[in-house]
């Protein structure tokens, strides 16, 4: 099985997100970076798939040179091949442009080493949350895609994919070559092992520069939604506060 996973490097802010002076990006001066959570799960799923069925997991990202860090992390948790599409513009590309670049990279990789049986995306990127890059790539490649997947079974060349909805579960069946958008919760991503860390050091990262035009969505500025200012009523500083907690539950009618 030849699997491709598209991951994005995103900042990991703590209690609030600060905005850069030019208002175009998150101020990352004091922040660490991580892989967007849904995609971490997509990668884990891909790693499990090749453990069961054999094959390779190519991990692809479009981002700054520093996104190598996320590809190396991917190498420590099951990725086998790594491709970076450089975008050193200092900010994100718009979704059309990102999708276009990823599509071109996939076309190149497939021309060299054969078709991917499964291409995986996150349900949405943690920062931009555009809900579209995976769909755009799938449409450009004329492959089936379903988003929001929380369960995958493989039988021969058919992927049975499950999506949770309010009333239960929807079941889809996609024949390879297929594309799936995955949600956090589909699995519990592993932590890197000693052996994984070694693999991460040794991983070779292919740089795939791609020329793409901007799409039709232009960022003007970022801003924070209005924050609710709350006066915190401290009910106590020990277990003795229990009585006041239960008074509160009573007042709210939930006792």
């Amino acid at each position: 099985m030849r699997v491709l996973v598209c991951v994005k490097r995103v900042p990991a802010p703590g209690s609030r997100i600060n905005i850069s002076p030019d208002q175009l990006n998150v101020d990352t001066a004091h922040l660490g970076f991580t892989t967007s959570p849904h995609e971490e799960c997509a990668l884990e799923e891909a790693a499990q798939i090749i453990e069961q069925h054999g094959g390779t997991v190519t991990v692809l990202t479009a981002g700054p040179t520093e996104a190598e860090e996320q590809l190396r992390y991917a190498a420590s948790v099951g990725g086998t091949d790594f491709v970076l599409i450089p975008n050193n513009s200092g900010g994100d590309w718009d979704p059309e442009r990102t999708a276009n670049a990823i599509t071109q990279a996939i076309n190149k990789l497939e021309a060299e080493d054969g078709q991917f049986d499964l291409i995986m995306f996150g349900n949405e990127s943690a920062d931009a949350g555009g809900f579209q890059v995976g769909v755009r790539v799938a449409v450009a490649l004329d492959r089936p895609i379903v988003n929001g997947i929380k369960g995958i079974e493989i039988n021969d060349r058919v992927f049975t994919a499950r999506r949770e909805v309010d009333t239960g579960v929807e079941v889809y069946q996609l024949e390879a070559p297929a594309v799936l958008g995955v949600r956090e919760g589909i699995n519990l991503p592993r932590y890197p092992t000693m052996k994984g860390r070694l693999a991460s050091k040794k991983a070779e990262i292919a740089i795939a520069p791609i020329e793409v035009h901007a799409g039709g969505q232009n960022k003007v500025r970022l801003h924070r939604p209005e924050e609710r200012v709350t006066e915190t009523n401290v009910l106590g500083e020990s277990a003795a506060a229990a009585a006041r907690v239960v008074d509160l539950l009573d007042e709210l009618g939930v006792l």
């Binding site: 609710r228 009910l235 500083e237």
Partner: peptide, 29 residues
Amino acid sequence: NMVTKAGYAVIADLHEVIPAVIEEVKRRR
């Protein structure tokens, strides 16, 4: 952050507060 944004807070070890709340709920009922 959870405390400064909450309307109500108890500043203590949850493993002491929760059993006490459970007892108090049972007692009143």
